[in-house]
């Protein structure tokens, strides 16, 4: 047994309610916001209805993931919930018991060990990092990593406080709600499995994005020094990406799809250009799926993979690089080869 793992299935829950950028921006009566949609690349995002919250999104994503999987819930050895938000029954934030324990109970994963991980937008990939080590130890054979992000409640605080287009709460307008789940299983002997590299916390930059619960209004807030965090993320990710490629005898042009954390189109593209210049090579495709989703926090990478699989864009053998950025400042790289999983999503290749 090689101790490696790979992605067996992915599930997503996108709320039905749509909120367009123009509708959102029309609520702010300040000049200079007209190009917000163009700069961010976000046309609309999905937001929770009154009956949805972080917990319901996570549970629905877990069910969707199981529906695409050969495993039943009872086969899962480990369930990790990685949401930033733990809203249950509306905007009531649950600290304990853990979300993962409740999700395990809802889906019927009787034997699974559970715990929650919270690491801002890097949550799900941190879950992958931790789970992958359990596979290496031979402690588990299957694992579900799940997240439900009900973050559209940030709008309320932001809309009251934004006075200029450079407000620290402007990034709160880019977010959208989503649930995502992924099942990992032991990789076949000949597979290279998930390659995980460079997960680091640049804690001296932890003050660049802060969020939490409001004191006097329901829901939360998020304040970001957008330009600084973008520059710091790009500068610090260059050596990490470079080392991840070198350690695995890869060059950037051997990556078919680069999927960075989805924040805004302009920052993704400018960051990618810095990476291409640094590596002197380009990956086949840069994935930007913000248009209909916005920034869905910890779920962005798996939402992007799910949507691309459903749009039949991937082929078996495509090499994917997931690049995570999150407040903290967290940077990490996951590389894997697309395999037969695409057939579970209607691909014929």
């Amino acid at each position: 047994m090689n101790g490696k793992c790979h992605i067996e299935s992915i599930g997503v829950k996108i709320p039905g309610k749509r909120l367009t950028t123009s509708e959102l921006i029309s609520r702010i009566k300040i000049p200079g916001m007209e190009k917000f949609g163009l700069l961010t690349g976000i046309r609309e995002r999905r937001v929770c209805s009154d009956t949805e919250d972080s917990f319901s999104l996570a549970c629905d994503a877990a069910r969707d993931c199981l529906a695409h999987s050969k495993y039943g819930a009872e086969d899962l050895d480990l369930v990790i919930c990685c949401s930033i938000t733990h809203y249950k029954n509306g905007l009531s934030h649950l600290y304990e018991p853990s979300f993962s324990l409740l999700i395990k109970d809802v889906i019927g994963a009787g034997k699974a060990m559970t715990f929650d991980i919270s690491n801002a937008c890097a949550g799900m990939l941190t879950g992958v990092y931790v789970a992958e080590n359990f596979f290496r130890l031979g402690k588990i054979s299957t694992c579900m990593i799940v997240s439900g992000e009900y973050i559209s409640n940030l709008y309320d605080h932001a809309l009251k406080n934004i006075r200029t287009p450079l407000s620290s709460e402007i990034s709160s307008l880019t977010v959208g709600d989503c649930g995502a789940a992924v099942i990992l299983e032991k990789a076949p002997e000949d597979s290279e499995g998930l390659i995980i590299s460079g997960f680091s916390t640049f804690s001296h930059l932890s003050g660049l994005c802060k969020g939490g619960q409001n004191k006097r209004t329901p829901g939360g807030y998020m304040k970001t020094k957008s330009i600084k965090i973008h520059k710091a993320s790009v500068a610090n990710c260059l050596p990490i990406v470079s080392e991840a490629l070198k350690a695995n005898n890869l060059t950037f042009d051997m990556i078919d799809y680069l999927i960075p954390h989805q924040t805004s189109r302009s920052s993704i593209i400018s960051g990618a250009i810095r990476l291409y210049e640094s590596e002197d090579k380009k990956p086949g495709n840069l994935v930007v799926n913000l248009r209909d989703n916005g920034n869905t926090a910890s779920t962005t990478h798996f939402l992007a993979i799910y949507q691309y699989m459903n749009e039949k864009r991937f082929h078996v053998g495509d090499r994917i690089m997931l690049l995570c950025f999150a407040s903290g400042l967290i940077i990490g790289v996951v590389i894997f080869m697309m395999d037969e999983i695409i057939y579970h999503y209607g691909n014929k290749d």
Binding site: S100, I117, S118, S200, T201, G332
Partner: peptide
């Protein structure tokens, strides 16, 4: 930072 400290929160009551 390469190979430096990685940190995260874990919740399990």
């Amino acid at each position: 930072f390469i190979g430096g400290t990685f940190s995260f929160d874990l919740g399990n009551g």
